[in-house]
Write a protein that binds this DNA or RNA. Structure first.
Lengths: 362, 362
DNA sequence: TATATTCGAGAAATCGATTTCTCGCAATGG
DNA sequence: CCATTGCGAGAAATCGATTTCTCGAATATA
């Protein structure tokens, strides 16, 4: 009963060949569409495939072709909703190109990451997207040693076949600054993370340029450098509040700092956004749920996933060439409730709108 | 330069065999630990493996052994944080047993699910955990046709090699009812989902029994049957509020209903939990973020993942036997802020505590 | 018309393991 | 002391595809 014992369940290429009265080689040629096969033969083959419900055995295929059709995706924590969304986009894209994806989340645990990477190597993945925003110390060495194509964020891996996704922080920061300017802010502080990190330098530079672009003199766009943490944020907030001309808005280089800023405001009885606007960066999970929900700069997971996949495609077609052009990925502003017009501007707006009323009446 | 062209990068079993001066068969025997190999030969083999950094090619291994060492995991939506956590537990477990996991989320889209399942079949997965809580119409047919071991929730798949995870709704519901009783509630309503669904019958029955167990007469534990939706919840709430003896707490068969109940309370100016306690079921994402955060019954993702994996193991060792014992999975109460003592009980508690004060002073 | 060239399809080699077969040697028993 | 059994290890078959080799037929060229 049921399936016959001893025999493997699947239909193999030989059975298809027999039924179509061609050689297995021809069946292979048809399914892969590589070489030309006479029209009538191909038709017979497709018919046989259909009738037998044949699907090529991926293991056999991988063995001879040397291509496993499996990719790796390394994320930092699966509980941050950013990553499941990224995973899904990446998997859909990969799936459409007949790849499977092994996903691993480091949970910021080096050993865990190492174990996962070993699994990737053992499974002969054809490429890995490292979406952790942290170039963990020598984590990638094993991948590099096996010459596995790598896509990383911001920082390139030395000696690897890799493509860097260069996040265009300027896009989102520009939007943030413009957003604030449009609301009427003329003094905007920037709470930067520590400068050794390239990504922080980029974020800071983006802010300085944006401020310049909307015509703010540099003393109206002060920069405070602190840790990329809650405490760093509180320090920044205190610094700005105690300066002679406190800004009416603070843009932070990361969300944790922004949360720190919010805390200080709440303690000092300064209402956000009425008395102070706050913008974060990264759009972590938390951002949505603090009080008030944080306006923040984020990057699209779809864009990121797509860029990562395209990066791998480039590497595959690049052959032995090592250094490829980085791929730019945009960022954009998510407006929530931590930003609004400053009090002074509201007053001005009030005057103006009364004027407009008069004009309208006239 | 770098790696030699033409040659595959990996070290294969033959190289290991040569270096250890044994046959490939012996190397295989050593790595798989199946047959007995002389001590000194095994030592030589391990040494060679170590020195060459050999890891067996999983594709070749899968091809000959007929075991892909890949599992499938089907979830309903990846954006509900329940599932990433479940995924991670399941993957960790699988990884520890040398399996990889293909994860797919249906997003409640039948076609999407179908595409994913086709991929599972094509990749020759050795088992699938269907964690969707919905026996989608004939979705699993393709898996069943290929005789792939299946683990499902609540409902078994006809004719499949499958194990059912029987969720013990009673555990968590019992906790919920006891929790409410302990707070002083003596009239508790249950908002049930539609009865055709087995899972709803089970939840309802569990409630009725629990209420009975704490000595509530059935008129103090009224049941309302509605849709498993927000609207179903609003209807239930209106029904209970307008009854002659409104309950002081409502237990819902699902979180969306609970959210509907909360909405009605908010509209009627009834404070939750002061004037009305509300308990949900499922503990969906939303539950944590509504106002007030919802006390809800959930099941542990670790337990679920573990039960799912054990189910597959059972199926593997069961051979052709079809119907296996179901595996029970517990549920438990997550207490948040939508439950508290009822006003009347608070007053009583006040009296009692004053009494206790006196006693203490004495 | 004879020869060179192209092209399509089958035969056979290959990928890298596992597993069955086979054989020699040592141990056991009559 | 010889025949039988058991066991460990190498030789060879196998898994299911792809890909290279090979060869005959068809077409193009002189």
């Amino acid at each position: 009963m049921s399936t016959q014992k001893g025999k493997r369940s699947g239909v193999d290429i030989i059975q298809v060949a027999r039924r179509a009265e061609v050689s297995p080689a021809t069946v292979s040629r048809v399914t892969n569409g590589r070489s030309t096969v006479a029209r009538h033969l191909a038709k017979r083959v497709w018919k046989a495939i259909e009738e037998l419900g044949y699907t090529p055995n991926p293991q056999a295929r991988a063995l001879v072709s040397g291509r496993s059709r499996v990719l790796g995706l390394l994320v930092s924590e699966i509980t941050n909703p950013f990553f499941p969304e990224l995973m899904q986009s990446f998997e859909d894209l990969a799936g459409a190109h007949d790849f499977e994806v092994m996903v691993g989340s480091t949970n910021y645990n080096l050993e865990r990451a190492r174990v996962f990477i070993r699994r990737l190597v053992q499974r002969r993945v054809e490429g890995v997207a490292v979406m952790t925003f942290r170039a963990e110390s020598h984590l990638l060495d094993e991948l590099i040693a096996h010459n596995i194509p790598l896509v990383t964020i911001d920082v390139s891996a030395d000696g690897a076949r890799s493509v860097v996704l260069e996040v265009d922080y300027a896009l989102g920061i520009d939007q943030a600054v413009q957003h604030l300017a449009l609301l009427g802010h003329r003094r905007i502080g920037f709470a930067s993370g520590p400068m050794p990190h390239l990504t922080n330098v980029r974020r800071r530079d983006a802010f300085v340029q944006s401020a310049h672009k909307i015509g703010l003199p540099s003393q109206s766009a002060p920069v405070f450098v602190g840790e990329h943490t809650f405490e760093g944020g509180t320090q920044a907030a205190l610094h700005f509040l105690d300066s002679k001309a406190p800004p009416t808005a603070i843009v932070c280089s990361n969300d944790m700092m922004a949360v720190g800023v919010l805390r200080v405001m709440s303690e000092r009885g300064i209402k956000v956004p009425r008395d102070m606007s706050v913008v974060g960066f990264d759009d972590i999970h938390l951002a949505e749920f603090v009080n008030p929900p944080l306006t923040s700069v984020r990057m699209s997971r779809q864009d990121l996933a797509q860029a990562a996949f395209r990066g791998l495609e480039k590497l595959w077609s690049a052959g032995d060439e090592k250094s490829l052009q980085p791929i730019r990925v945009g960022t954009s502003l998510v407006v929530r409730q931590s930003t609004d017009a400053p009090k002074e501007a509201l007053a001005a707006l009030g005057r103006r709108s009364r004027m407009q009323d008069k004009l309208a009446i006239r």
